[in-house]
């Protein structure tokens, strides 16, 4: 808990500093919002929470302990890392800032001009965290999109993977016999 508190504090300090310096001349900030780290907690050996700033609201993930810091050094800046949270799979992007070191972020809002006041932003952040940690995954939607992402990168699932995915996801709706009946008389397709 203490480490999470410390992380929250250092994030707030770092991003307050960024707001006053580098973001000073950026015209898409929401002046009604302030920098605040919301709900930081230990998660899976890391430190997870929501960071509100006048220019974004993100899920932020920071390494837990010295070991984590060292491990994260091998991640490329800008690399995408998938984390499985109770609400599903989320892609985080690796960044780095001198005062806080390596971090991973997943954008919730940016810019944040639609937030009327800081209170609205805080409630949004809190309810987002709550939703993130609530195990309400819809079993039927077994993220077929991960295949889309793989394929977009030219990495196609093998025939075995496809077959096992089919079996696993649809044991009742489409029987193996049904699947093969379609291909009757074609011996090639019966090999699996």
């Amino acid at each position: 808990m203490d480490s999470a508190k410390a992380v929250a504090k250092s994030l707030e300090a770092a991003f307050s500093g960024i707001q006053k310096t580098r973001m000073n001349d950026v015209p898409i900030l929401n002046p009604a919002l302030a920098v605040e780290a919301v709900g930081f907690r230990d998660w899976n050996g890391h430190c997870l929470g929501v960071l509100i700033t006048p220019w974004f609201i993100n899920l932020m993930l920071l390494p837990g302990g010295e070991e984590g810091v060292e491990k994260w050094q091998s991640l490329g800046l800008g690399a995408s890392v998938t984390h499985i949270l109770p609400a599903g799979r989320f892609n985080f992007i690796v960044g780095e800032e001198e005062a806080i070191g390596r971090f991973q972020m997943c954008s919730l809002f940016s810019p944040v001009l639609e937030f009327e006041d800081h209170e609205a932003a805080r409630i949004t952040a809190e309810s987002a965290l709550q939703a993130l940690m609530a195990d309400e995954q819809d079993e039927k939607v077994e993220d077929p999109d991960r295949h889309m992402l793989r394929m977009a990168k030219g990495d196609f699932p093998s025939a075995e993977e496809i077959a096992s995915e089919r079996e696993r996801a649809a044991p009742h709706e489409v029987s193996r016999r049904n699947l093969l009946t379609v291909s009757q008389g074609d011996e090639e397709s019966t090999a699996s």
Partner: peptide, 8 residues
């Protein structure tokens, strides 16, 4: 995007 967030 992390560079945007960090004002880089």
């Amino acid at each position: 995007r992390p560079h945007f967030d960090a004002g880089q």
